[in-house]
Structures are given as structure tokens and as C-alpha cells.
Design a protein around this nucleic acid. Structure first.
Length: 473
DNA sequence: CGATGCGGGGACG
DNA sequence: CGTCCCCGCATCG
């Protein structure tokens, strides 16, 4: 169906039978047709950092991928995670961004350009035609996913709020605290409960790990209430869910060798504001082994925004589950594509070198990644070899954790309130509560990115994940 | 401050 | 020409 048209065709399919659900992380040579009502599509949004490219064709909007910003030393954060920041779209801002230092090792940050399309950046094309928005992507991202736009925005908003009161010393303290806690909590959902909200309410967003297949989940009915936001979230949500499966093939691309560890990709972004984001590995197995960081989108949990996640959590709480189901068709298409792409010749070469760190021992079961709003996203991986089916298995394993998650919900949730907007919808909400005010401080002084776990977010995410599992079951 | 779009221009093939 | 990229301008949140 999707190959029946090309973005450059003089005439595109009229009145498509159905519209695709918004895909936050399109990858590979894929095409989608969104409803002109879809806000994310209207805004030409993408999880990838895409910048406008002049193609001298006002009918077709072309955007090219900026890649991802990582630590020049490719250092591994305490938990085996790596920074994967979203490149600023604005050239000027990007240059500034690259002058900042890695919060973990103080080395410089590095922009990994995207060369997934015949050596050129992956390109995305958008074209509005009647009631449909045609989307076409060309190329396979040869780099890890950066933090999603929503995560970035959440981080910023959080920063703004907190900045006023933040102090460096406090920030540092917070950071330390988080780290310590982080360690303590290794890997268990339960731990999450224990985690204090370091950041302040605002900053952290938790990212769940999307590595496993996520069954369709019901969406909160309220989503429908706010079409716009709801759609957005749902879209991203779906994307996240789908991505894991779809992209499984890609893992190889990023990480050539099969490893069994968990990988965590944590984009922590802390530029001026630092939010420590705490993330935990939900899996039972801690990441003690060195987790290899992979860039695989699939694995990256980051794809899910805190919002999304929170959304999930909410949905659960609310008992709205219907929504999830809808993601399906998108998945299918993706899945197919993925398979096709699995063999991509691209990247495999460089990427590994750049990104691949020592492989980590395989972790076992579940992996959850929690990210701060800021953007730390953890990615847990399974062995690179993992396939969809494998993921499924994991999922099952993970299911065990569901109860944990629920506990979380009970525990934390209350604390986290959903204020006017949905957490899922708006990142800011997440931040608003911060149980521990102290943490919220961000360090600005150095412009480093911090990462830390966020309780609220974590909570949400966990739930979301749990949810997923349940559904899957 | 940045994200986005737009569009002129230059460099290449 | 077509493809890419750079740059400035403008709008908007």
C-alpha cells in the first residue's frame, strides 16, 4: 500500500482509506499517510532532530537529520548509559550546545552527524494534499536516537521553572544523591519507589524501555478529550511501542556484535539546567556488567517521552486501556519495513566503532529505562541478537514486574498529581510535583547535562510498561 | 532562546 | 537540472 506513491508524484492518492497513526521515530525508507488533522503531522514533528532543508519546492517540505550529540569520549554513565542529546535545530544553538561539556566526564560533547542516506543525512519529506499529509522518509539512521522533542521541551520547561532557585552546590548535591540512590535502586522497580525525586519536580522525565514488544494498550479516554494532545501522546506512544519491534533489525546496525547485556542509552541533557535524572534499571539484573550501549532505536527507551509514559501510567490508573489497541496497523507496516531494513548495509560499520562500547554481559530480564525529563533515557537491551520474538519473551518476564509497577503507582502516583494537563500530555506537569524540592535545582554553571532519575516519571513509566506487558499477556 | 519555514544562492555532478 | 548545504529573515511559543 505504501509503495503506491512517491512524495514527488504529481498526483498522490486521493482520499486514502485510512490514515496512519503518527510515527515519532520513522526510520528506513518508509511512507505514511497522516490525517491533516493530526497535529504532530501538521507540525512535521519527529523524534529525530530534523532540520528544515530547502529543496526549492514549496509543495514538499524537506527535512534532514542532524544526528545526535554524545560525549566525545563516549563515556559510560554510572549505570552504563550514555548521553544522547538532541541536537539543537538552530545552527547557532547547536554550536553553543557543542561547547558544553559532558556532565559525566567533563569532556567535550560531540555531534554525530547522520549519514544514513547514501552518506547524507536521512531525509524526511512532508506534503499536504487535501485531507492527508503524506510523509516519506529516506535513509536509515546510523546513530542512536537523541532525546525526543517532547523530552527536550520538558527539560527546558522544567529548567525554567527551577532555575530561579537552583544553586550549583545544591545541584551537585542532588546529583550525588541521585547517583547514590541510583545505585541503590539498581534495577528494581521497587527501588524506584524509594527513589526520591531528585530533580525537582520538573526535571525528570522517565523513559521507559521500549525494547520489548508492547501490546496494544488502551489509551485513556481522556485523550480523546483533548484531541490534540491526546493524539500526540498516543502517537508518540505508539511509535514507541512499535519501534522496538520494528527496529529490532537495526540493532545490528548499531551494534554489530551480539551482546547480551543491557544497554542503556541515557540521554541526559543538562545544558544549562541540569536535572539529574535518575534512572533505574527495572530489570532484575542489574547492569553491573558493562552494558553495551547501543544506539538501536529499538532498544532505546528514550523514544518514549516522559509524557507518553506518564500517559500510560495515567491510562492505567484511569483504567482506560482501550486506546492501545489502535496502534496496530502502524506496527504492521513498520514491522514489515523493519525486516526489510534489517539487512541494511548502512552504518553498521561506523557506528559500532563510535558508539559501541564494550559489550556488556547480558542482562537478563527486564529493562526499563527511566529518564529524566531532561532526557536521560535508559535503554536496556538484550543481546543484540534479540529478535522480536525474544523481546516478547522478555516481556513475559517483565510481566512479573507489573505488580511492582502497580505498587509504584500506588505509592508514587498520589504524589504525582495530574494537574490540569496531563502529564502525558505535558511534561511540565510531571515536574510540578517534586517531592523533593532540593533536587530540582539545576546546575547551570557549566552547561552540563545531567541525568538523574525522576520518581514521578519513573513511576509513570513503569506503569506504562507494566501496562504494556499486561496487555501483551 | 530556539524551533520552524521560507527562499536566495553557491557548489557539484 | 537536481541535490545538498549555508545563510539570513521572519514568525511563534
Amino acid at each position: 500500500m505504501k509503495l503506491t506513491w512517491d512524495i514527488n508524484d504529481s498526483k498522490l492518492p486521493q482520499e486514502p482509506k485510512h490514515f496512519d497513526d503518527f510515527q515519532e521515530w520513522p526510520d528506513d525508507y518508509v511512507q505514511f499517510i497522516y490525517s491533516s488533522e493530526e497535529k504532530n503531522a501538521q507540525r512535521h514533528l519527529s523524534g529525530w532532530a530534523m532540520r528544515n532543508t530547502n529543496n526549492h519546492n514549496c509543495q514538499i517540505l524537506k527535512k534532514s537529520c542532524l544526528g545526535v550529540v554524545v560525549c566525545a569520549r563516549n563515556c559510560t554513565l554510572p549505570e552504563g548509559i550514555k548521553l544522547q542529546l538532541r541536537p539543537a535545530i538552530c545552527d547557532k544553538a547547536r554550536q553553543k550546545q557543542q561547547k558544553k561539556i559532558c556532565p559525566n566526564c567533563n569532556s567535550t560533547l560531540e555531534l554525530i552527524p547522520c549519514r544514513g542516506h547514501s552518506g547524507y543525512p536521512v531525509t524526511n519529506f512532508w506534503r499536504l494534499d487535501g485531507k492527508a499529509i503524506f510523509f516519506q522518509a529516506k535513509g536509515v539512521h546510523d546513530h542512536p536516537r537523541p532525546e525526543s522533542k517532547s523530552e527536550t521541551e520538558a527539560r527546558r520547561s522544567a529548567v525554567k521553572k527551577q532555575m530561579p532557585s537552583s544553586h550549583l552546590s545544591q545541584k551537585k548535591q542532588l546529583l550525588e544523591l541521585e547517583m547514590g540512590r541510583y545505585h541503590e535502586s539498581d534495577g528494581h522497580f521497587n527501588n524506584i519507589h524509594h527513589l526520591p525525586c531528585l530533580e525537582g519536580s520538573e526535571k525528570f522525565s522517565v523513559v521507559s524501555d521500549t525494547s520489548f514488544p508492547i501490546p496494544a494498550q488502551p489509551y485513556p479516554s481522556f485523550l480523546s478529550t483533548d484531541p490534540y494532545k491526546a493524539t500526540y501522546d498516543s502517537a508518540s506512544f505508539q511509535a514507541n511501542m512499535e519501534s522496538p519491534f520494528q527496529k529490532c533489525p537495526n540493532p545490528r546496525i548499531y551494534v554489530p556484535r551480539p551482546t547480551c547485556g543491557y544497554e542503556f542509552a541515557v540521554p541526559g541533557y543538562v545544558s544549562s539546567s541540569s536535572y539529574p535524572a535518575l534512572y533505574k534499571d527495572l530489570t532484575n539484573t542489574p547492569m553491573e556488567a558493562d552494558p553495551i550501549i547501543r544506539n538501536d532505536p529499538q532498544y532505546s527507551v528514550s523514544s518514549l517521552n516522559a509524557h507518553d509514559k506518564s500517559l500510560d501510567g495515567f491510562s492505567k490508573h484511569h483504567g482506560l486501556k482501550q486506546f492501545m489497541g489502535k496502534t496496530d496497523y502502524g506496527d504492521k507496516s513498520d514491522y514489515v519495513q523493519i525486516q526489510a531494513s534489517s539487512n541494511h548495509p548502512y552504518y553498521s560499520g561506523d557506528y559500532p566503532c563510535r558508539y559501541a562500547s564494550p559489550s556488556t554481559p547480558a542482562a537478563s530480564a527486564l529493562q526499563t529505562v527511566i529518564t529524566t525529563t531532561t532526557k536521560v533515557s535508559y535503554q536496556a537491551y538484550k543481546p543484540s541478537v534479540v529478535k522480536y520474538s525474544d523481546n516478547v519473551c522478555d516481556t513475559k518476564t517483565l510481566l512479573n514486574c507489573s505488580h511492582l509497577a502497580e505498587n509504584h503507582s500506588g505509592t508514587f502516583y498520589p504524589g504525582l498529581k495530574v494537574q490540569g494537563d496531563w502529564c502525558g500530555v505535558k511534561p511540565t506537569l510531571l515536574y510540578e510535583h517534586d517531592p523533593t524540592s532540593t533536587k530540582s535545582e539545576c546546575f547551570e554553571a557549566v552547561d552540563t547535562y545531567q541525568y538523574g532519575p525522576n520518581l514521578g516519571n519513573n513511576y509513570v513509566e513503569h506503569e506504562g510498561q507494566i501496562f504494556r506487558f499486561e496487555n501483551g499477556e
